[in-house]
Amino acid sequence: MPPAGCFRRSLLIGAGAAALVSPAIAQKGWEPTRPVQFIVPAGTGGGADQMARVIQGIVSKHKLMRQPMVVVNKAGGAGAEGFLEAKGARGNPHMIVITLSNLFTTPMATGVPFNWQDLTPVAMLALDEFVLWVNAESPWKTAAEFIAAAKQERLKLGGTGSKQEDQIIAVAIGKATGAQLTYVPYRGGGEVAVQLVGKHVDASVNNPIEAVTHWRSGALRPLCVFDSQRLANTEKMTETMAWSDIPTAKETGLDVEYLMLRGIFMPAGVQPAQVAFYEGLLEKVRETPDWRELMQQGAFNSTSMTGDAFRAWLTKEEARHRTLMQEAGFLA
């Protein structure tokens, strides 16, 4: 950031602080006094972007906030750009960031000077699940069969991005079982699912929402979910199966677990009252039927956390990612 940017921001902070001292507002708790920037450290159309825009839509539809919410995509360098922007906006209460696993992986893989502790954690909205998918015409009916085949000959696993969640899972499977998997990176989850349908790769670890339609049309088959417990949704998605019928990886003898954070952060150095406002706002968002529908559709793990519990979770996850990335040789 050039010094010019800092100059402008310090003015912004000045105005924000002035609003805080004003007694009328202080009594009612803090509220945004200008449009809120919602930073998405990913491109338009991806999972994080979709979630951010759903939140934006819910907030405006149910009039949960007086000021508008403005989504800003900062996708450069696997999201590094967006995180650095938020890091540089210290004390700005009119900025929130939605994160995915690149909160941990991007700084580790690229060496960009950033850490989640440069931000203020607000809330965990949900966790995104990962499912091992194969083409329905493939001979593998269980994860164990797939792993056994991958030990015989090298199989190709498609995923989104490089040195990110999908590749971490691929490497973790290899480490845990000795299966030989070639990871092929693509740009987006939807593309990966179609490549699997077209048999250009042998398997994928798509999120449920990315692959559900191909599962329902009978083109893909889920083998296991990388969570400690089965998915909650018991409604039949195909003739025979519901999300809850997919076994966990552990049940099938594959000791790999991975969930992806969908959380909201603010820049560092903001007031507790400001954090409290966004916690309350997101709580209201989670209670809307629109949000519940999204959770249902995407078979999300709708665990949510705030405050110290969230911080503790983040600390634990960061350490885990460091281990996983180190084992995979992805650290910059």
């Binding site: 402008r8 003015l11 912004l12 105005a15 449009p35 920037q37 403005v70 800003v72």
Partner: peptide, 10 residues
Amino acid sequence: VQLPKGPLES
């Protein structure tokens, strides 16, 4: 759409 703003807009 947020464009760069300065002290006046602030």
